[in-house]
């Protein structure tokens, strides 16, 4: 039984590798566009980091947070988000796929619909995010090997949080029809709250940031895990990621029963 489960995971891992390779090849057909998007996202993130550097030069400590913590936060959030949408780029497209009946094509394959559909697209700008996080963390924080291993593990756990939130917010399309605008707003909120220290917020907002907009699993627990090399906080981050994925998947599958397909002319790209 365990061997079979392992074989299944290995099989899906090979599929992930194949999809990433196909998506990358597809982007390489337009190298210039791909590189410019990666660089643009890198620069965009850099502007925020520069802002925080200037801020902490004037106010060295903000509710116990120092410049290193905020840089680490940005690095983890950017890489986590980047990894999520590099591998599972269709997470961003879920409302459009639902509204236009484009889930059809994914339902014809002998694979679990949700993970398979998520793999189907790579977001070029997300590659820039993923790269940015690692470059900034290594360049600014100069981690030792243990911290770096912890950082890699945390970016993967945070990627799960973002994938889960993409599924969760995208699945609203099943229930309210055209949810593209609402989903986009929710994602902006998630990204915004993920890039500010959680210590800035109190009370009800904090509760929201561990539930409705689960940015707390990005902007607090991973930082604590890295500060103290705390396996407990790292584990809680992972648990948060798995939890958000489970909630998102449940809502997706509940919504799928309402799916009514469509008849739009389409090409995959």
């Amino acid at each position: 039984m365990e061997a079979s489960l392992f074989a299944k995971f290995y099989n899906y891992f090979l599929l992930v590798v194949k999809y990433v390779s196909c998506n990358f090849k597809s982007h390489m057909e337009y190298r210039g566009a791909f590189l410019s998007q990666v660089i643009a996202m890198f620069l965009n993130n850099s502007v925020w980091v520069i802002f925080w550097v200037i801020f902490f030069n004037r106010f060295p400590v903000l509710r116990g947070w120092e410049i290193k913590d905020v840089i680490t936060l940005w690095a983890i959030a950017a890489s986590g988000f980047g990894i999520a949408d590099t591998i599972c780029g269709n997470g961003l497209e879920i409302p459009r796929l639902i509204t236009r009946g484009q889930l059809d094509i994914w339902m014809l394959y002998p694979r679990k619909l949700l993970p398979h559909m998520l793999l189907g697209r790579m977001d070029a700008t997300a590659c820039g995010d993923a790269l940015f996080g690692y470059v900034v963390y290594i360049g600014f924080v100069h981690p030792d090997i243990l911290h770096f291993i912890m950082f890699v593990a945390l970016t993967l756990a945070v990627a799960l949080v973002f994938i889960g939130f993409d599924i969760l917010s995208g699945s609203l399309g099943f229930f309210i029809g055209n949810s593209e605008a609402l989903t986009l707003e929710l994602r902006f909120a998630m990204i915004t709250f993920s890039t500010y220290p959680l210590n800035l917020f109190d009370g009800a907002v904090k509760i929201i940031l561990y539930t409705l907009i689960p940015a707390g699993f990005v902007s607090y627990l991973p930082i604590q895990a890295l500060r103290n090399l705390s396996l407990t906080d790292a584990f809680l981050t992972l648990l948060g990621g798995i939890g958000v994925i489970l909630v998102g998947s449940t809502i997706f599958h509940l919504g799928l029963k309402r799916y009514e397909s469509g008849n739009l002319l389409e090409m995959r790209n």
């Binding site: 196909c22 090849k25 597809s26 057909e29 337009y30 484009q102 389409e266 995959r268």
Partner: peptide, 9 residues
């Protein structure tokens, strides 16, 4: 009206 071929590949 819907393709399973990758457009750019």
């Amino acid at each position: 009206q819907r393709s399973q071929l990758w457009y750019h590949l």
